[in-house]
């Protein structure tokens, strides 16, 4: 297996005026291609900082980060932007779709900033393919406010996929969704992972983390636990169970 992410002794320090905050204090981590990792931790544990470093949105204060074999430490702002565009796909808690912009145009957005020019017909085709993967091809012309939360998050996932990234980074992707929709979205992630896409997500929900293959726990800026998920949840089974429960609820009601 090839290492997609390799973190060597990563530190991140914020100086907030006079106070120095050590958000991450020496993390070593290797993530290989095809993994499905959940990073967990309480708020203030440093998991968001770690995620920002992984997403090349932030630079580590110390340490080395190899992304797909490329050392990201001495890249400038625009080079990191290109790296994010080419090798990373982002899914956020708040979906972060452009308002009053159709699902299709939202998905096309990363290709607009692709350093190599993509003809508009090709852009459209790739965006539609990505929407197809998340099961929203027929909603391509809908605006975000015409879509449910789960659908918006699936559009966001399609947007993250459209440049064929090495890793999908998801920051609390189910944080704004109800439990059933969360299971559906995790189903999308599981399906993508089966296709071989590497996924790293941050969550604070244990049951959501169980849909992943590997769980990391961060506390006080350090990696305190790293284990494979034993009793993994599968969204197909969970959805089936939820459907049965709903049906049962209706039965008892009608009885």
């Amino acid at each position: 297996m090839k290492a997609v992410v390799q973190l060597d002794n990563i530190h991140k320090t914020y100086s907030n005026g006079e106070v120095e905050v050590h958000a991450v204090r020496g993390i070593n981590l290797t993530i290989e291609s095809g993994e499905f990792v959940a990073i967990m931790g309480a708020s203030g544990s440093g998991k968001s900082t770690l995620m920002n470093v992984l997403g090349c949105l932030d630079r580590p204060s110390k340490g080395r980060y190899l992304l797909d074999g490329v050392d990201t430490s001495d890249l400038d702002r625009n080079e990191r932007a290109d790296l994010r565009n080419q090798k990373l796909g982002f899914v956020f808690q708040g979906f972060n779709l452009l308002a009053r912009t159709t699902a299709l145009e939202n998905v096309e957005l990363p290709m607009l900033y692709n350093p190599s020019r993509i003809p508009s017909r090709e852009k459209r085709k790739r965006a539609l393919d990505a929407l197809e993967i998340v099961g929203l091809a027929e909603r391509a012309d809908h605006l975000p406010n015409q879509l449910s939360g789960g659908q918006q998050q699936r559009v966001a996932i399609a947007r993250a996929l459209v440049n064929n990234p090495q890793i999908l980074l998801a920051d609390e992707p189910t944080g704004n969704l109800d439990s059933k929709t969360s299971v559906e979205v995790m189903g999308v992630f599981q399906k993508l992972n089966e296709r071989g896409i590497t996924i790293v997500m941050v969550t604070h929900e244990l049951d959501i983390a169980k849909y992943c293959k590997r769980n990391l726990i961060v506390r006080d800026g350090l990696l305190v636990r790293d284990e494979l998920v034993q009793d993994r949840s599968f969204s197909d089974r969970e959805l089936q169970r939820i459907r049965e429960e709903e049906a049962a609820a209706k039965l008892t009601q009608s009885a």
């Binding site: 702002r77 932007a81 565009n85 972060n96 308002a99 957005l109 900033y113």
Partner: peptide, 12 residues
């Protein structure tokens, strides 16, 4: 919106 654009690869 600017944050999204920058995150997904827009240059300054």
């Amino acid at each position: 919106e600017i944050g999204i654009r920058l995150a997904i690869g827009a240059h300054d």
